[in-house]
Design a protein around this nucleic acid. Structure first.
Lengths: 287, 287
DNA sequence: GATTGACTGAATGAAAAATTTCAGAAACTA
DNA sequence: TAGTTTCTGAAATTTTTCATTCAGTCAATC
């Protein structure tokens, strides 16, 4: 039995400091365990005795034995953690790993419904500094749109995120000019007000980019580009992880395309934020 | 300079026993060097003093330092394949598919640092209707926390999402009672104000559940449960997709655990929303 | 065949690492 | 609230690991 499994098995009756240890060990497995005991103690913020007790609890004779095991796992497992994960052992591993495996497979297929050229085209739209970008999403999917706005804003100017409240939407509509981009995220249990928004934008000759699921939001008919992502998991709720990944692919590509400007912009941005921070008594805001 | 190179460089003036040592070390590099000195002495059929002399000859201060170097080489060597992988993968199959594939693999391994029992324990906490839930995240990662709040709110009462503005946080802190749950998401470029929040919550005997990356947010020390997820992609920006997937796993599990109540709650919720919708002229809000 | 110089490892000493003890602190229970 | 149990880390102890000394061996040279 490998160390990870031993920890997993014993985890049910860990004390708080043992849980801290497990967290640290697993967070950088197996390297976190290959340091001196006192260093590990510092890192996990527990005492050395707690480590000793921990290793005995997971069925080893002592700390040196733990390291021995970890090294031999390393040597044998020249395979990557992913492969290990994919092979037999983990397949019938609890709820969490089952869920993640499903989500992961689904995500791998998220690129199926989007062609590379379409992807590139959308990136070009988003990277084009002559166009303003407006973004919004549905009740839950707005988090995806927010993610887009956030990162895009680091790469370029004139990125506007529409607030939740539809009352103020007209204000934004009035500002949209021909050639601007309206990025809309709408997954099932589609919102009528969103497609009305798309419709209006389209009549103003705004480029509407829609991210939706394979049942297709009604806004589809008002979109010039449609990104279809799989969201069904077979569980109670859908998974937006593939949608988020696609969004990240977009913003990362845009940032890479425009790297010189993006870099400068981020630096300037950070400098200003640091300025605010000082004035506001160390109220930082990252993450 | 790595160890192998050091050995090669110094090789010209090795004594016979040093050559033996070099042979053994390089024949099973770097693992051969990760055993106790006396074992290595046996394996190479030299004495321990010869090892000491050897280590100094290649420019290190002592045997422990040799091992330290070897471990850090291992760890770095393990990291870079991901990036190499990324670039080589991108070449064939295009940018989008390369990105998604990477994100997908990373996601599959997202469960590696979280034990199933820990996962269950956190689900139990979140499902416990006696405890109120407070959630918040960092500048960008708050979208993850929002996702949690949104879904959790469908399954249970008393889910509160802290607003972005720290000005009003004290209001929430005052409301937190012993046994309540504070769910915090904090990824790198950690925010000081978040861990201060965690600290205060902990002193009020609130259960602090922290989701962070493997560098561990400073809030770790104030958390009773820490969920570590991989976020590094080797690109300009990190990917939060694994974090989102883990979050979805949590909320899905909670909904399943409490399905009868959740079902009723969603139905009642929908009914009320429909009511609003009619009054507000078809202004629906799903997604 | 004696002498020198370079190399080696047994033994020893020093340092560091790991474990155990124990008492105080915290969390539970009645 | 008192009593009990569980958990934790400071300090002491033990064990292990590593470095050094130094005498012996061997090969080369005179």
């Amino acid at each position: 039995m490998n160390i990870r499994k031993r920890i997993e098995t014993a985890a049910t009756d860990f004390t708080p400091s043992e849980r801290k240890l497990a967290t640290v060990l697993l967070s950088d497995y197996p390297y976190a365990g290959l340091i001196k005991m006192h260093e590990l103690a510092d890192r996990a913020e527990v005492s050395q005795p707690s480590i000793s007790r921990f290793v005995i609890k997971i069925g080893l004779s002592g700390f040196p034995e733990l390291q021995k095991h970890l090294v031999s796992e390393l040597r044998e497992g020249d395979r990557s953690p992913v492969e290990i994960h994919a092979t037999s052992e983990q397949i019938k591993g609890g709820y969490l790993n089952g869920f993640l495996r499903l989500a992961s497979e689904q995500m791998a297929s998220a690129g199926q419904a989007v062609t590379e050229s379409q992807f590139e085209q959308i990136c070009d739209l988003l990277a084009d500094s002559k166009r303003a970008i407006y973004a919004v999403g549905g009740r839950i999917s707005d988090t995806i749109a927010q993610h887009l706005s956030f990162h895009l804003r680091q790469a370029r100017e004139r990125v506007y995120h529409l607030p939740r409240d539809p009352e103020v939407w007209p204000e934004y509509l009035l500002r949209m000019k021909q050639g601007d981009v309206f990025f809309l995220v709408d997954f099932r249990r589609y919102q009528k007000n969103l497609w009305q928004l798309a419709k209006q934008a389209q009549t103003q000759k705004v480029q509407v980019v829609l991210m939706t699921d394979h049942w297709l939001s009604p806004a589809t008919r008002h979109a010039s580009e449609v990104l279809v992502v799989p969201i069904e998991t077979g569980t109670i709720w859908d998974s937006y992880a593939p949608a988020l990944a696609l969004t990240e692919a977009l913003v990362t590509r845009v940032a890479e395309k425009t790297w010189p400007q993006t870099r400068k912009r981020i630096e300037a941005w950070d400098a200003m934020r640091d300025g605010f921070k000082e004035r506001a008594h160390e109220q930082t805001d990252n993450g």
